[in-house]
Design a protein around this nucleic acid. Sequence first.
DNA 1: CTCGGTGCAAACTCTTTGCATTGAC
DNA 2: GTCAATGCAAAGAGTTTGCACCGAG
Lengths: 146, 146
Amino acid sequence: MTDSKWPKDLKKTRVRQAIVNVLREASSPLSALQITTEILKSNDKIWPSTLYRGLDALVSAELVRRIALTESSAALYELSTHRHSHYAICLDCRKMFAIHNCPLTNYEPLIADKDFTIMNHKMEIYGYCGACLKKRIDKSNRERNQ
Amino acid sequence: MTDSKWPKDLKKTRVRQAIVNVLREASSPLSALQITTEILKSNDKIWPSTLYRGLDALVSAELVRRIALTESSAALYELSTHRHSHYAICLDCRKMFAIHNCPLTNYEPLIADKDFTIMNHKMEIYGYCGACLKKRIDKSNRERNQ
DNA sequence: CTCGGTGCAAACTCTTTGCATTGAC
DNA sequence: GTCAATGCAAAGAGTTTGCACCGAG
């Protein structure tokens, strides 16, 4: 509710505030559907079109960042106050872990001379988080012993 | 037509051969729609469902690789004989340039200890190719001079 | 009061599913 | 001949568009 730095040229409407409130409480990026579900929980109403238009406005105002993952068809959204650029995503539980130091920062100049000027990049790392890896190992041990 | 190493357990059907033929002639990855268009040009017919099922079969047989870009909603397909892992994509003309040496190969061990075991990764680089960058510069010069 | 935001319906893109028929082996 | 591949229709997810009404500034 306390929206510290809401851009003055961005109308502060019910829907937009609801979106920001939901994203503020989220521990990881949310899909449009997840945001809708959360808003509906608070006995507030929202329509898909309005949600997407609201998100577009917030993304344009740089309050919200849109993340498109190659593996999922739905886009994810997070507050842009969290300065994440990349994520490692667990193949089992789909939990997302922010990667703070980007490996490409030093690498980009190496390919920049190939008649291509780099503006930005996307990177996703897939694997298993500690908990899920343990479960996998336990499971394969159990199967071997029976 | 000369399909050097067609997996013996993969039925060699009209549709699958048509897909492979189209992809063989392609200079960059194609979308399902582009593949459909190419096949229809040869007075051959194809239905979306059949195309997708054919692509799935070819991907499973590892003859074809599926590329999902974060920026486009449609998946792209290429023959897996071209050993590309990453692309640099021009923001203007959308041309794709293969990147052969992956910057993450040496980097992965650096984050692997963070209770996360990396299995694979996706990377896309966005920017401007030489031709499009020149056009942009020329255009901005022209606008400045008038 | 005004113009942009919203409710609602409908469309649109990409992809998948179901089922009867066809064709590869 | 058998079973998987295909033709075709229809549905599904995610997102966008159109238009009348509403509400923030």
